[in-house]
Nucleic acid binder design. Structure first.
Lengths: 131, 131
DNA sequence: TTCATAGTGATAACTATTATCAATAATATA
DNA sequence: TATATTATTGATAATAGTTATCACTATGAA
């Protein structure tokens, strides 16, 4: 159930390609999307390698990981922001409103620690709404 | 991939038991948790029936559905609120701070429509932190 | 009561993800 | 630079959560 992602120690072509790609797009891709995109240039790339490294980057805080419709989505931009996911086309967009963090903390149990705050708004995007 | 949940037309013992149970707990159970709890009184209950109905209730807006660690969690309380999920024990708690809705709407694309807003804070709960 | 059909139970199928492991390649060291 | 060590990869099998299928059951209308 858990990917036992070890902190990365050696740099490889695969790792570089994966993080570079993730940071170059704003599509919030799934592991398979990253895999398919990179496979064009690295035909022997393995899907397992993509999962392994995306997962590791997320654990190291070098990427964001959240779930939409039972699938993991990754984001190379780790600055705090929210996401909008379209039910129809499956696309995910960034939202940059600020959360009332002091208010949020007040509501947490005393002694609880926060690792991440994921805000996911679901609905229908403007493009899908006009169709 | 999609559960073709039809809007409920007939009332059955199973449906009643499922929604009654979901509304009686604050544990944000998975489908299997609901199944195991109800199975004690309804031994022939099927896991598929639980999934089918929990999913249908969520689509009808009679329950909340969100995902934690790749698993669906259900909440019988549909009034707007957020959730805290503990990485260690897997428990989920309600959080009742208010979101800055006007600000949120301003950041959405014009023409986009919102179905749900899921706020999921992940971390370690107070109990797991002291251990 | 009878009838049409929505819903259930049992189980198979599916899909995303994780685990396994022999082969490969990155780095430290001689 | 050559060699040794071992982290990482690629290929693939295994897993788990969820969804689909379908014969049978039971609800609710007539």
């Amino acid at each position: 159930m858990k990917n036992t992602a070890t902190p990365s120690q050696r740099s490889t072509k695969q790792k570089t390609a994966i993080i570079t790609y993730l940071r170059s797009v704003k599509t919030h891709p799934t592991a398979e999307m990253v895999y398919l995109a990179l496979k064009k240039k690295m035909p022997q790339l393995s899907l397992g390698t993509v999962y392994r490294n995306l997962d590791a980057y997320a654990q190291e805080g070098k990427s964001l990981l959240f779930e939409v419709k039972g699938q993991q989505r990754f984001d190379g931009d780790v600055s705090p922001h929210s996401h909008f996911a379209c039910d129809a086309c499956g696309g995910v967009q960034d939202l940059w409103f600020a959360l009332p963090l002091p208010k949020v903390k007040k509501h947490l149990s005393h002694g609880a620690s926060v690792r991440s705050i994921d805000v996911l708004i679901k609905g229908q995007c403007d493009t899908c709404n006009v169709r």
